[in-house]
Design a protein around this nucleic acid. Structure first.
Lengths: 160, 160
DNA sequence: GCACATTAGTTAATGTATTAACTAATTGAC
DNA sequence: GTCAATTAGTTAATACATTAACTAATGTGC
């Protein structure tokens, strides 16, 4: 049963008190957690998860996309799209049918049920988004968006 | 094969162009995605995932915490801690032993291997954090942290 | 001191996400 | 025209995360 006083060494740097980068990264992660929790609770009312909702909105916007297109738009792996579509197809929210011009591809579309569910959610969705940002004024929200866009741009330029 | 022009209705609000809250939420989610990707790639070198690294740092800081304490500190469910500990215990990075004063509890501790791995990572971890925020000046990083803290505070006040 | 509630941890079921390894359809070199 | 390479999608293995349902230990009322 080792009673180590050895972790002191690490604890010195444990706080990273000098680093503004660390503080920023940690707050991004925390903020995301809050967004996730709020949205998950909200979407559960409709028997949806936040990623499923996101998927539905993109299927709607793209109009019969291939699964490949969906993955790119969602910034998610291709197999993940397959599995997510399997589920919401089983729930009757989307339809998949092969593209006659290229039989490798499958085109995805909202079902009548998916379309009406999306309409229903949309009516109250904006209020939820406002609720997430309730602590900030509109000016601050715009400032936050600007800063995060700048941070994001530094990576998307080099990656894509 | 329904060729619907029905989604137009939704597409009107699809952009949410008027909402600064939506833009802010979306950018938080995108920024988190970038943090996740970078960190996952980085930690993979050490055969760790970001949550596993986070777990190790907290075990180190708390000094023989119970699993309950870990869950609270990680903002994660209790069963999740069990499963994550199972894995990193199997990898030989932590030890679990029952608390003699309350045999329901298990105390968690870094193994020698876990401690030395953590030390190794720590040496270069700060650089990774700086890399995430490379697009922002230090002033902007602090501004970002301040805004996110304010946003977070609006929720933690009511929730905790 | 015994029954009941509480607390700590685990197990099971489900959903999200990844990479690696596969099948099937298309394209392209020759 | 046929064989190889590419592309679209699926399946398998693994990890993270949740809630619900369980076991085991502790504490409390009486």
């Amino acid at each position: 049963m080792p009673d180590s006083s050895e972790s002191i060494e690490l604890n010195i740097r444990d706080e990273f008190s000098a680093s503004s980068a660390r503080a920023a990264v940690v707050s991004v992660v925390r903020a995301y957690g809050i967004v996730q929790r709020l949205m998950a609770t909200y979407f559960a009312q409709f028997d949806l998860t936040p990623p499923q909702f996101q998927l539905l909105t993109i299927v709607n916007r793209l109009r019969k996309p291939t699964q490949r297109q969906l993955a790119r738009e969602l910034y998610v792996s291709f197999p993940n799209v397959t599995v997510m579509l399997d589920r919401i197809e089983k729930a009757g929210l989307i339809l998949r049918f092969p593209n006659v011009e290229d039989k490798r591809e499958k085109l995805v579309e909202l079902s009548e049920r998916g379309r009406s569910l999306l309409k229903k959610i949309w009516k109250v969705h904006q209020e939820q988004l406002d609720l997430v940002m309730v602590g900030l004024t509109e000016t601050e929200q715009k400032q936050l968006t600007r800063l995060l866009h700048k941070m994001i741009a530094a990576h998307t330029n080099t990656t894509e």
